[in-house]
Design a protein around this nucleic acid. Structure first.
Length: 298
DNA sequence: CAGATTTGACCTAT
DNA sequence: ATAGGTCAAATCTG
């Protein structure tokens, strides 16, 4: 137990040091590499402690279990629980389609004074996908992703220098397409946009959508049958699928991207180069399957 | 003039 | 109570 407490105290210490650095030195806030390492150290230390506590809970007093049940990521999920087997009724943190998402599998009824059945929440991270994309010079919009979007709002966000823009698919009204995206410029890297996609396209009207065999069945937005001309498009666009990755960084690649920025000072935001990076990452077996070496880029 | 964008007001979840 | 998300009227643009 002492060792576990030591781990927790270590993590707290690192977190305090990071906090102090952020408050004292302006440069630190823009040093992504340092921030990343610090966060990883903190998360690592907490993870070790959590592992130890999980190991204990099966053999230890109920008090330890109660502690875990009440503290391990109540409600919104505990970011420190990544990779740690969560006990039953606890939310598990998973990686989802390039972005972090929190799978809420816990017991309903956490909301005070309300029905025990949780209402469907617009703010739950269902099917979200977060991408980091280079901002094109002199343009507020992210690079074309093959879909047409209509901007329906812009809002100043707390603690963000730049406003967030809201878009939905232009076919929202005609085809009931539920795809939406939020676009926000990063505070630390104004040349980078964070694009958050919510919901899959069901309109299938993209002209250059990549053919992605749909092997994931997590698509809630599928609208049953598809009619008339859409049936023909279906053979081209396959099933309702997630956003194509053309030109875009997944969150996992963001640290690589940030390292590039750190190393080179200024990152060349040429879309072609980012595209090149995307197609040479080699981590996307789907893309590999689609674009054999002899075919090259579309 | 139609469609896109802006922006203040309103709604909803926390 | 507050912040984030959405609506819709006003405005802009081709």
């Amino acid at each position: 137990m002492e060792e576990i407490l030591s781990r927790i105290l270590d993590a707290c210490k690192i977190a305090r040091e990071l906090e102090s650095s952020l408050l004292l030195y302006v440069d630190v806030a823009s040093d992504a590499h340092y921030l990343l390492r610090s966060c990883e150290e903190i998360v690592g230390a907490f993870n070790k402690a959590v592992h130890g506590l999980y190991a204990m809970q099966s053999s230890q007093a109920p008090s330890v279990q109660m502690l875990l049940m009440s503290s391990a990521g109540e409600g919104t999920g505990n970011p420190f629980c990544t990779g740690v087997p969560a006990p039953e009724n606890q939310p598990a943190v998973t990686e989802s389609e390039g972005g972090l998402s929190y799978v809420h599998s816990g017991a309903p009824g956490q909301r005070k004074g309300k029905s025990l059945v949780p209402r469907s929440s617009k703010k739950r991270n269902e099917g979200i996908s977060i991408k980091l994309v280079p901002a094109q010079p002199n343009m507020e919009n992210p690079p074309d992703d093959g879909y047409t979007w209509k901007k329906y709002g812009q809002k100043e966000i707390l603690n963000s220098r730049f406003p967030r823009s809201y878009y939905h698919c232009t076919h929202k009204h005609h085809h009931g397409c539920k795809a939406k995206k939020k676009v926000q410029r990063l505070d630390d890297y104004p040349s980078t946009l964070e694009v958050t996609y919510c919901g899959a396209h069901t309109c299938r009207t993209s002209l250059n959508q990549i053919l992605i065999p749909n092997d994931n069945n997590n698509n809630d937005d599928s609208q049953g049958g598809h009619l008339g001309a859409q049936a023909a498009l279906q053979t081209v666009a396959s099933q309702p699928t997630l956003i194509q990755d053309h030109n875009w960084f997944n969150r996992e690649d963001s640290s690589r991207y940030i390292e590039q920025m750190q190393g080179g000072g200024e990152v060349d935001c040429s879309v072609a180069e980012f595209e090149d990076v995307m197609f040479t990452l080699g981590s996307n077996s789907t893309l590999d399957a689609i674009f054999s070496p002899s075919q090259g880029k579309p």
